[in-house]
Design a protein around this nucleic acid. Sequence first.
DNA 1: AAAAAATAATAGTATTACTATCTTGTTTGC
DNA 2: GCAAACAAGATAGTAATACTATTATTTTTT
Lengths: 225, 225
Amino acid sequence: MQELLKTVQIRVNDRIYAKDPDSSDLGRNIINESVEIIHEIGFDAFTFKKLAISLGTTESTVYRYFENKHRLLVYLTSWYWGWLEYKIVLGTSNLADPEEILQKIIAIISNPLSENQTHDLMSLEKLHNIIISESPKAFLTKLVETEVREGFFANFIRVNDRIIKVINEINPDYIHARTMASMLLDTVSNQWFLSLHFPSLTDVGMDNDRLAAFLTSITKRCLTS
Amino acid sequence: MQELLKTVQIRVNDRIYAKDPDSSDLGRNIINESVEIIHEIGFDAFTFKKLAISLGTTESTVYRYFENKHRLLVYLTSWYWGWLEYKIVLGTSNLADPEEILQKIIAIISNPLSENQTHDLMSLEKLHNIIISESPKAFLTKLVETEVREGFFANFIRVNDRIIKVINEINPDYIHARTMASMLLDTVSNQWFLSLHFPSLTDVGMDNDRLAAFLTSITKRCLTS
DNA sequence: AAAAAATAATAGTATTACTATCTTGTTTGC
DNA sequence: GCAAACAAGATAGTAATACTATTATTTTTT
């Protein structure tokens, strides 16, 4: 399974890119190097020019793959949620009890790198870091409406929907299933971010299981009627 | 009290600005007009040039008040949290029971504009909108570390600390007080945002009390031992 | 009323985010 | 096996952005 994870192709909405980066060596290099640079200098300072120089190519070549750097960030986040869904599907396939499934999902989203996973396309560790500190910028734009309509965030929505479904199985009468699901996903990123930069605002520290324990306690107390 | 709220001065860390915008007519116009423009075209498209033209002045004049547009956003968010703390202090001053206080705080943060408040400095409604859709950008920068150290986010941290304190009063043995507090604040913004752009991911819709009901149910179930 | 200080306007520059055009390589049909 | 068609990549721009430096004007202080 480790081997499988290393090379599995994650499906990303093809409207996000101009040309599929996963269809050529240069395209894959663009993704891999983007993750490196964004992780190092942050998304705001990241430019196609810097990326092109790093790759020994030119800006216009990069533009052939992505219309602009915002789309590239959308691609990375979409890829991440696709990868996470894959992890969730694999990790819960042998479970039947919805309560157990939810617990497992919480464990996975809270700590997606627990098993020291790798992938050929890019550094998962650095991608995870980018998701925590940059991915909200993919949503927070005046163009969200259009991008939602174009299905740019389908992978994220699908992970949400899976959690909603499990919550409904545990307690069909719970009236905040959707709110609970999106809160769980948002809280994971937010608490990771706080633990890095505002440690006084969270109890989640170096202890990786603390976050999962917190979220599990909430769902247990709220969903058992 | 309505009158009082209209003109009360909110304290903002003086390192955020180069010159206090609340100390001159032009400065106040800069704030007021910034809120209008950012609300209309979004923070990314907002520039000091557009602002200057709107005000009938020049870029360099704006730069005298704020080093860059990021600082201006930090100012707006800091002002917002200062204002919210003020609302919380006023709204809970007559309460003694910590459970009641927490409920009131949740009601205020979930729906801060409930009483159709106004302020001379800027449109609170538009500021609230900016907080929901742009304020994370104030945090999500490679410079957070420095900015935290300089106390740029002190107003936000203080609101957090107030909630932590109340939670500790309700249940001193609860080990996730900090995580719970920051989750409450983050969830409010996030759910507002989702209700606007990803309505399928939340149960919070046009019904303004639904969010408060959700958060109250969580705290009640988690904090009562 | 003159000197000092604060404020504003003018005119730049380096960088960014693209676009348009030209050149080279690669495939495809015959 | 080779020309035609097409895709990929390089070169050379441009308009806008985010500032900065310098000069001019107003306001305040003595």
